[in-house]
């Protein structure tokens, strides 16, 4: 990042090492191998993949979150406490998280897990804007799980508030009980209904909670309450939630609060931190840095 003080040759070496180091890092990740990349490198460079160079920073945000995610997944589920931190200074209200989430979970019309609230504040010329992405808060004292008559929505030991689609009656009591309006109901509609027919991508299966479901007829999740679930199905495969990975401002962080050396634990030690509607005592797991 600084000025090019090194001579050309040294810089080329550095770049080469950097690229190879990057390759080595991703080799280390359990799920994705850079087979083609390594082979290309091997073919042209006649060298071997070097171990990670000390000077190349591995503390960059998403790779750090990725690593910490893998660490956390090794622990028993009751020792994890997933939290999300949203830096409102970095959020640019692009709505990519809203749409990415809708695409990842195949959300139909009328269901949105993570809208972004955009406010204009002040009087000209002293004005500003505030952007607040609002996923499910995954409260520690969730008002929604308290009121479900059959316990179809419940809080997992790792903190994620889940819904059992096969149990849920669709009584919508939990929708009324959420102070953040985070729950939606699946009315059974399609975006492309009567156009003249529903397009194939709407009948693709979705994998929420690790269950494969196709929205057809009267089957769940149609007729159920639905909400953000921190992409459990992605966590189960060592991937960060979609909103975290597609955020173009890099404003969304996710991790295990019980890891004192983790990124999210350090972020919420800031004086900028706040949670929404703290006075209600719900103790959300989503923190905002204002």
């Amino acid at each position: 990042m600084g000025s090019n003080k090194e001579p050309n040759q040294g810089r080329k070496e550095f770049i080469k090492k950097g690229l190879l180091a990057g390759g080595g890092l991703l080799v280390a990740s359990e799920l994705i191998k850079w087979k083609p990349m390594i082979e290309a490198v091997k073919a042209t460079q006649h060298t071997e993949v070097l171990p990670l160079v000390e000077t190349v920073s591995t503390e960059d945000v998403v790779i750090r979150m990725q690593k910490e995610l893998h660490e956390a997944l090794k622990k028993p589920v009751e020792e994890i406490h997933w939290i999300m931190v949203i830096d409102q200074k970095k959020c640019v209200a692009c709505d990519a998280c809203t749409v990415g989430c809708s695409a990842e979970n195949g959300l139909p019309p009328g269901v949105v897990y993570r809208p972004v609230i955009k406010e204009e504040i002040g009087t000209y010329p002293n004005v500003s804007r505030r952007f607040t992405p609002r996923p499910c808060m995954h409260c520690e004292n969730p008002p929604c799980t308290q009121v479900c008559p059959i316990g179809a929505t419940y809080k997992r030991p790792d903190g994620i508030v889940s819904i059992d689609y096969d149990k849920c009656l669709g009584c919508r009591y939990c929708l009324s009980a959420c102070p953040y309006g985070a729950r939606s109901f699946d009315w059974g509609e399609y975006h492309t209904e009567n156009t003249p027919e529903v397009m194939p991508y709407e009948l693709e299966p979705t994998f929420e909670y690790g269950d494969e479901k196709v929205r057809k007829g009267n089957k769940s999740p149609i007729g159920n309450a639905r909400k953000c679930h921190f992409c459990i199905h992605r966590l189960q495969n060592g991937m960060l939630p979609t909103c975290v990975t597609t955020c173009i401002g890099r404003a969304t962080y996710f991790g295990d609060l019980n890891n004192p050396n983790g990124l999210v634990a350090s972020l919420i030690g800031s004086p900028r931190v706040k949670r929404l509607k703290e006075k209600l005592g719900t103790k959300p797991s989503v923190y905002y840095l204002t």
Partner: peptide
């Protein structure tokens, strides 16, 4: 109900914190 055919769930599963239950 969103799933009227599941009304019997309310009699088989219960949640002591839920007044509706």
């Amino acid at each position: 109900l969103g799933h009227p055919e599941r009304f019997w769930h309310a009699l088989v599963y219960r949640q002591p914190t839920s007044i509706l239950s």
